[in-house]
């Protein structure tokens, strides 16, 4: 997905790959108007490969299954966002764009259903980015 976003760079947009280190999120989050987290998500009831979008700070957004899920040293993305918010180190808008998966397991390859969703996810992220750039996000 990062490769797709980098293929046609939009001005003012930075793509950062955190790999297995959500603890590095705050290295990249400062100085921007919008932060878009792109990740695999587990949404019970949704089909694998379906696109999930939400405003992180929307009180009505679904709760995460576990704040500690798949993190190194107990520092998950959710925890890092909490930390960033507490320290005022986050942009005012934080969105999550995720692709639904069935089960996160180390070592399993991406399924075809998830892979097929990538171009659409890239398109949606770019739209958000363009809106953020024009101040309408």
């Amino acid at each position: 997905m990062a490769e797709g976003l980098c293929a046609d760079t939009l001005p003012g947009i930075t793509v950062a790959k955190l790999g297995t280190r959500p603890a590095d999120l705050l290295d990249h989050a400062q100085g921007y108007a919008v932060l878009i987290i792109v990740d695999a998500v587990c949404c019970p009831g949704e089909k694998p490969g379906s696109l999930i979008e939400m405003d992180w700070f929307d009180p009505a957004r679904p709760a995460l299954k576990s704040e500690e899920a798949l993190s190194t040293h107990g520092i998950s993305l959710g925890r890092q966002i909490d930390l960033g918010q507490s320290l005022e180190m986050l942009p005012p808008v934080v969105r999550l764009v995720g692709v639904n998966i069935v089960q996160p397991e180390i070592g399993r390859l991406m399924t075809e259903a998830v892979r097929k969703c990538i171009p659409e996810a890239v398109r949606v992220i770019r739209q958000h980015a363009i809106r953020a750039k024009s101040g309408t996000e």
Binding site: D24, L26, G74, R79, S86, L87
Partner: peptide, 24 residues
């Protein structure tokens, strides 16, 4: 956790995050 600690010691945690970023 660090999140609850940061509410009272935000300055310390901010400085630490800056140093960690420099290491990276």
């Amino acid at each position: 956790s660090a999140v609850s600690m940061a509410r009272d010691h935000g300055g310390i945690v901010r400085r630490a995050l800056r140093i960690k970023k420099a290491g990276n």
